[in-house]
Simulated scan of single mutants.
Amino acid sequence: MDDEQLNIFKEAFKKANNGSINFPGNFQQGKINEIKFFTAVMRGAMHVRFFIAKNETEKWYLDLFTITDDYSWHKRIEHDGTIINLENFERQFGWPVYPDDAERTKREHDEIRAINSNVQSVLLQKGLVKNFDMPDFEKENVVRLDYTHNDTDLL
């Protein structure tokens, strides 16, 4: 990957993460890169996993999954810097409850479970969430990056 492509990813990575995380300088090509940090003591947690690969037309792309204390996002950065939202977990802020309609509540909860199960499978397949059932995969494919967060990352 040339410097121009890397600069495109650097700029888009920060945008894709809502301006909260700079692209790390010590990432490893061909690995799943993991960043974890807190913006305050045990608060403001951010956990990012990403990888860079080529698609079927030999164009670079970057896939990432980020979790904060409050929400998550799953995105792709195309070779030109275009940011695409990918499948993500549903109803991260609580599930609907209809006190007068237990069947509707159950039906919607079942739908949310099915969607979230599919998202979890996609993220596991990509290596963007930890696979507790495959510790060897984690050891061989995930690089935990040293990342020193500072307040300028939030600007």
Score class of each variant (00 low, 15 high):
residue 1 M to D: 10
residue 1 M to C: 12
residue 2 D to T: 06
residue 2 D to Y: 04
residue 4 E to G: 07
residue 5 Q to K: 15
residue 6 L to R: 01
residue 6 L to C: 05
residue 8 I to Q: 00
residue 8 I to A: 03
residue 8 I to H: 00
residue 9 F to R: 06
residue 9 F to Y: 11
residue 11 E to S: 14
residue 11 E to V: 06
residue 12 A to R: 00
residue 13 F to P: 02
residue 17 N to H: 10
residue 19 G to V: 02
residue 19 G to T: 02
residue 19 G to M: 03
residue 21 I to F: 05
residue 22 N to M: 08
residue 23 F to E: 08
residue 23 F to I: 06
residue 25 G to E: 13
residue 25 G to H: 08
residue 25 G to C: 00
residue 26 N to W: 11
residue 26 N to I: 15
residue 27 F to Y: 15
residue 29 Q to G: 11
residue 32 I to N: 03
residue 32 I to A: 06
residue 35 I to H: 03
residue 37 F to E: 03
residue 39 T to K: 12
residue 42 M to N: 11
residue 45 A to N: 01
residue 46 M to N: 12
residue 47 H to K: 03
residue 50 F to P: 01
residue 51 F to N: 00
residue 53 A to I: 01
residue 54 K to A: 07
residue 56 E to A: 13
residue 58 E to V: 04
residue 58 E to K: 11
residue 59 K to L: 05
residue 60 W to V: 01
residue 62 L to C: 02
residue 66 T to D: 14
residue 66 T to M: 15
residue 66 T to S: 14
residue 67 I to A: 13
residue 68 T to M: 07
residue 69 D to F: 04
residue 69 D to C: 14
residue 73 W to P: 01
residue 75 K to H: 11
residue 76 R to T: 13
residue 77 I to S: 00
residue 77 I to G: 04
residue 78 E to G: 06
residue 82 T to M: 09
residue 83 I to V: 12
residue 84 I to Y: 10
residue 84 I to D: 10
residue 84 I to A: 12
residue 87 E to Q: 06
residue 90 E to K: 14
residue 91 R to Q: 15
residue 92 Q to P: 10
residue 95 W to D: 15
residue 97 V to K: 14
residue 98 Y to N: 10
residue 99 P to R: 06
residue 99 P to H: 06
residue 100 D to K: 05
residue 103 E to I: 08
residue 103 E to V: 09
residue 103 E to A: 12
residue 103 E to K: 10
residue 104 R to K: 14
residue 105 T to P: 02
residue 106 K to T: 06
residue 106 K to S: 10
residue 107 R to D: 07
residue 118 N to G: 12
residue 119 V to C: 13
residue 124 L to Q: 04
residue 124 L to N: 07
residue 128 L to S: 02
residue 129 V to Q: 08
residue 129 V to H: 04
residue 131 N to V: 11
residue 131 N to F: 01
residue 133 D to T: 06
residue 135 P to D: 13
residue 137 F to R: 11
residue 137 F to K: 01
residue 139 K to T: 11
residue 140 E to N: 15
residue 140 E to D: 15
residue 141 N to P: 05
residue 142 V to Q: 04
residue 144 R to F: 04
residue 148 T to C: 09
residue 149 H to N: 09
residue 149 H to V: 01
residue 150 N to V: 08
residue 152 T to G: 01
residue 155 L to F: 08
